Computed example of a mutant assay.
Amino acid sequence: MTDESLFPDDLLELQERLHRAHAEHRACLAALPWSVEPMKGWSRGERFSHRGDVPDSPGWSDEQKATVARLWAEIGQLSFKVGGHPHWKSVPTEILVASRMRLKRQARPAEAPESPDAAEVA
């Protein structure tokens, strides 16, 4: 393909899967305790904390650690496939970065904005 705005369907699919894997990874991390290992929390007065009081963390279970590792490995594999796709050999070097950024925007899954401000930023 000579037109840099057109991407092969398989590359678009890979990039969309990569976006989804990143979203799943972020959601997984957000649901986990703040510390991987068990750790005592603290109150705002003891240490600086932009979050206020920080509760004790029970740490992550082996299953939670395995899930995070699996998701991170999936992100790595998809990133490798997107970056190593044969399409990039046909894109001139001077527009390669811009073309990759265009792919990221074009393949982003449609999601409802989390807040009114998020819609303005996107």
Rank of each mutant, 00 (worst) to 15 (best):
1 M>C: 12
10 D>M: 03
10 D>Y: 06
14 L>W: 02
14 L>S: 03
15 Q>K: 08
16 E>P: 04
18 L>T: 00
20 R>N: 11
20 R>C: 09
22 H>E: 13
24 E>Q: 09
24 E>S: 12
25 H>A: 14
26 R>N: 08
27 A>M: 11
30 A>T: 01
31 A>H: 06
31 A>C: 09
34 W>Y: 01
34 W>V: 00
37 E>T: 07
39 M>C: 07
39 M>W: 08
39 M>S: 13
41 G>Q: 00
44 R>H: 15
47 R>T: 10
48 F>Y: 11
49 S>M: 06
50 H>I: 14
54 V>A: 02
57 S>T: 05
60 W>H: 01
61 S>C: 03
62 D>F: 05
63 E>I: 04
65 K>N: 04
66 A>G: 08
66 A>H: 05
67 T>F: 06
67 T>D: 06
67 T>R: 15
68 V>S: 00
71 L>R: 02
72 W>D: 15
74 E>Y: 10
77 Q>R: 11
78 L>A: 00
78 L>W: 00
79 S>H: 08
85 H>F: 06
85 H>C: 01
85 H>Y: 02
87 H>K: 01
90 S>G: 13
90 S>E: 10
90 S>K: 11
92 P>N: 14
95 I>L: 15
96 L>G: 13
96 L>D: 12
97 V>M: 13
101 M>A: 13
104 K>M: 12
105 R>W: 13
108 R>F: 05
109 P>D: 04
111 E>Q: 10
114 E>L: 10
114 E>D: 10
115 S>I: 11
116 P>I: 05
118 A>R: 10
120 E>R: 10
120 E>N: 11
122 A>W: 10
